[in-house]
Simulated assay, not measured.
Amino acid sequence: MPQSTFELFDIDSLLSDEERAMRDTVRSFVEAKVSPHLAQWYEEAAIPARDLARELGGLGVLGMHLEGYGCAGTSATAYGLACLELEAADSGLRSLVSVQGSLAMYAIWQWGSEEHRERWLPAMAAGEAIGCFGLTEPDFGSNPAGMRTRAVADGDGWVLNGTKMWITNGSVADVAVVWAQTEEGIRGFVVPTDTAGFSAPEITRKMSLRASVTSELVLEDVRLPADAAFPEVRGLKGPLSCLNEARFGIVFGALGAARTCLDTAIAYAGEREIFDRSLASYQLTQAKLADMSLELGKGMLLALHLARKKDAGTLSSEQVSLGKLNNVREAIDIARECRTILGAAGITLEYPVMRHANNLESVLTYEGTSEVHQLVIGRALTGEAAFR
């Protein structure tokens, strides 16, 4: 009998019963509620984000790895497996969950005041409130320290001015975590999106992550109370800690996209006849499938190793960079190679392969480009920072 990649590597033997149950629950939800609609959402560049957020909240995956405030408090491994199943459907779906849980919710959970946590986290965990995370700017992505968004103390509050770019969930968010320069360094602010002077125009004409809301954030004399600021964290420690959480989810998520592409290519090759034989029976096809399965399985073993370290509290940021760099790079290569097996059929939305390949172009860039992660790893190996 043919085996899938994860069966070939016997991945299930490395998971607990609880982890397998979480994975299977998310997979069933995705297959029933999301996958049938993805081609249409992608083609129309529209997604019912609020309805999905409520359903995902009911499923318990929003902020699932956080403790308290209505969050499920699962292991990092279970969260990673959920990300894999979400991105097996579409990177945009996993992005919605990652930005909600690992960026906006994690920032409030880790760095916010108790009032921030009680006000926002239960509603966000339930999907009744959506969050976004404003760090990247039009001219400052890999170098967030140069951000121009500024918060100025004014009387008993703050006034924020600036622009953020490429913000997932921005146009549908109820709350934005915004990072800004202050006289004390970079600080984070909890900004309700109905605050005067705040706007979030949606970014359109995308060729990637079309089943996802991507926006600009514009802050024009946005006046906030003094307690809108995160009370203690200063500098890049705050936002970078959040990015590390999101990158961890990507280590697993990208593998989900690759798995779907590979499963699709294997099924297609078995059914497609060329010169009176199945495409799957040719040596060149089998060589492609074998190489892709090897890289996918190795990526999964790496992801699980990093997840166990995260659960043990021993995972370093450099190790997350190893996972993000390898797994996204291999995933996009797998998606592209699978497209060759499908031939012309691979460019249509009848199959998910080109959609995943296009989405992975964004995943390759966000939460740290491949080049940045190479430099993070290079710094760990040499002790020399080569970012400048």
Rank of each mutant, 00 (worst) to 15 (best):
Q286I: 05
A287I: 14
S281R: 09
K298R: 15
L289Y: 06
A280R: 04
M292T: 03
L301Q: 06
D276Q: 08
L306T: 12
D276G: 01
A303I: 14
E295L: 14
M300L: 12
L289F: 05
D291A: 15
L302P: 01
G299D: 10
R272M: 06
A287P: 00
F275S: 09
A280H: 07
L296G: 01
R272N: 11
A290E: 10
D276Y: 13
I274P: 02
D291H: 11
E271N: 08
L306G: 13
G297H: 13
M292L: 14
I274V: 15
Q286K: 02
L279T: 01
G297T: 11
F275R: 14
A290P: 00
K288P: 03
T285C: 00
G270K: 14
L284D: 14
D291N: 06
A280Y: 01
S278P: 12
Q286Y: 01
M292G: 10
G299E: 11
I274S: 06
M292I: 08
L284E: 14
H305K: 15
D291K: 04
L289W: 06
L306P: 04
G297Q: 08
G297F: 06
L301I: 05
H305Q: 15
Y268E: 07
D276R: 15
L289R: 10
S293D: 12
G297E: 06
S281P: 11
